[in-house]
């Protein structure tokens, strides 16, 4: 518990310092305001998303200490989404982009479902969208180690039961971690902690804790971003029959486009046949 509290305080401290430093530099009027523009714009964008909801192409937003930049995880590297975000920045160098398998909105939906399901269940202590910890280290998900998942903290006694249930229903959108006794549901706090109290969250349901960080939009990443994509030979036949050879796997976006293009038209005479039937 102490360990998590320390991590928590450290994160909050950095957040507070960041905010303080940010505010100080913005308000100083000493000519550095221009340097802060990306952060100001980032804050505005976050506020806008928090108020109006996140676009479906956003999976996560974190602050990468190594890059000294905010990183926005785009679902399937959504280029249109990236363009949309960049269009709101006068200096796009202050932000970086990553890739996310799931959108934040999708994860929230799953979180809500599991939270509802867990209301009357014994042994589920926390459900949140965010990261987990492993051997005391904060750990994200996906290839980059930055992605979010729905993290469910539950008692060891019910772990196997829910592992198979949630695995079947939600696959790798959900990550289960073992925790210990928490507090009543009615003490829930925060969007990411609909079950459990802050004590429980800090102690073991870091899900809610990190979700709260997400809300603050200042999660910290101490590790650098490592992208190591396996490259494979690919033979793809496009929907139009043309064969395309590439040296990498299709992206999910390309698969979606290919399925979209593969829609099937009925015969040209079908409408006449329908009219004939109607007349009869």
């Amino acid at each position: 518990m102490k360990k998590f509290r320390i991590i928590g305080f450290a994160l909050l401290l950095v957040m507070a310092l960041s905010s303080y430093s940010f505010a100080q530099r913005v308000d100083s009027g000493d000519g550095v305001v221009g340097d802060m523009a990306p952060e100001v714009e980032m804050r505005d964008l976050f506020s806008q998303w928090e108020m109006n909801g996140y676009p479906d192409y956003v999976g996560y937003v974190i602050y990468d200490n190594n890059l000294n930049k905010h990183v926005i995880g785009l679902v399937e590297g959504n280029q249109a989404g990236k363009d949309e975000i960049l269009s709101q920045f006068s200096n796009p160098e202050g932000i970086s982009f990553g890739s996310s398998k799931y959108s934040y909105n999708e994860l929230l939906e799953v979180q809500n479902e599991i939270s509802k399901d867990a209301q009357n269940k014994e042994g589920i202590y926390g459900v949140g969208v965010g990261w987990t910890t492993e051997n005391g280290k904060v750990k994200g998900f996906g290839e980059s180690g930055q992605e979010f998942r729905v993290v469910v903290t539950l008692d060891e006694a019910v772990y196997d039961e829910y592992a198979s249930k949630y695995q079947a229903e939600y696959g790798d959108m959900v990550y289960l971690e073992k925790g210990s006794q928490a507090v009543p549901v009615e003490d829930s706090v925060g969007r990411g902690a609909e079950i459990g109290t802050m004590d429980a969250i800090e102690d073991k349901s870091n899900t809610g804790f990190y979700a709260s960080i997400f809300v603050a939009m200042l999660a910290l990443v101490s590790a650098g971003i490592l992208i190591n994509r396996r490259r494979t030979a690919l033979v793809k036949q496009a929907a139009n029959g043309e064969q395309v050879t590439e040296s990498r796997p299709l992206t999910r976006g390309e698969v979606v486009s290919a399925v979209k293009e593969s829609e099937i038209k009925p015969g040209d005479d079908l409408y006449d046949d329908i009219l004939d039937k109607i007349k009869k």
Binding site: K101, Y102, E106, E109, V110, E113, I114, E169, Y170, G171, M173, P249, L250, T251, R252, V255, V256, V259
Partner: peptide, 16 residues
């Protein structure tokens, strides 16, 4: 809804 979302993602992954 969550199941639909997951199954969709899984299906796209499988197609991929």
């Amino acid at each position: 809804l969550g199941t639909v979302l997951w199954r969709y993602q899984r299906a796209i992954g499988r197609l991929r």
